[in-house]
Design a protein around this nucleic acid. Structure first.
Lengths: 117, 117
DNA sequence: CCGTATCCATTGTGATACTG
DNA sequence: CAGTATCACAATGGATACGG
């Protein structure tokens, strides 16, 4: 049983640990929507219909700022805006899938833990 | 380029996607503190010295409720309380490490994206 | 079509101080 | 030793409505 390092915080700040924790509830879902290629704003709203435009935009801006997603405006009219994964964003899909696989595998246990019905 | 499913939300709700997103900033760090064996409350406060007792307790209660961590009181005096990973909690370490590895590998890109100095 | 503006409820974070 | 009590503050998350 190895002793804990004296200051794990300096070694691993919380934000460094979790790029998954974009501070954003929808970010991961948006990434998965983009995995097969670029999508337009309105295309994203369909599968994510529970999210309001404001919140979707918030998510997209965050992902753009962090370099996971690229935004391209194609002038119109009618104009369209495409969102696509950057290489960085695509590289995150691996760990993200690992997380999803884990969740799927342990879904029952998670439910039981929260609500031992 | 496959079309998006009509309702990705029904298929993958946000909370299902991210067990990482405990809704808690310190949870992942706590799990890592426990990876080598049970720890007492005061032992956890050392490496995580930036977190106040209230917040650490909050984190631990959340992890306990979700079945990641088990709390054991050993009566005293002086009494001690040990926190340990459950099998479920331990199983989460795999994906968690994958995320950490990804973050380490792409750390420079992340910094550049946020602050293109 | 692709968002923005407002407003509000809720939750997360934290400092500080105190207790069985 | 292992927490709790209080208070305060910031940041989401979301509903609704409007704009270029």
């Amino acid at each position: 049983m190895t002793p804990l390092p004296p200051d794990l915080f300096d070694e691993l700040c919380p934000s460094s640990l979790l790029p998954f924790r974009f501070g954003d509830k929808w970010a991961a879902l948006v990434l998965r929507c983009l995995e097969d290629g670029p999508r337009r704003y309105s295309e994203l709203r369909v599968p994510l219909r529970r999210v309001t435009p404001k919140v979707l935009t918030q998510s997209l801006r965050g992902l753009e700022r962090d370099g996971f997603v690229a935004r391209t405006v194609r002038p119109g009219p009618p104009r369209s805006v495409e969102y696509a994964l950057t290489p960085l964003g695509r590289s995150l899909l691996g760990p993200l899938y690992a997380a999803c696989a884990w969740a799927a595998e342990h879904w029952d246990e998670l439910l039981d833990a929260r609500d031992p019905a």
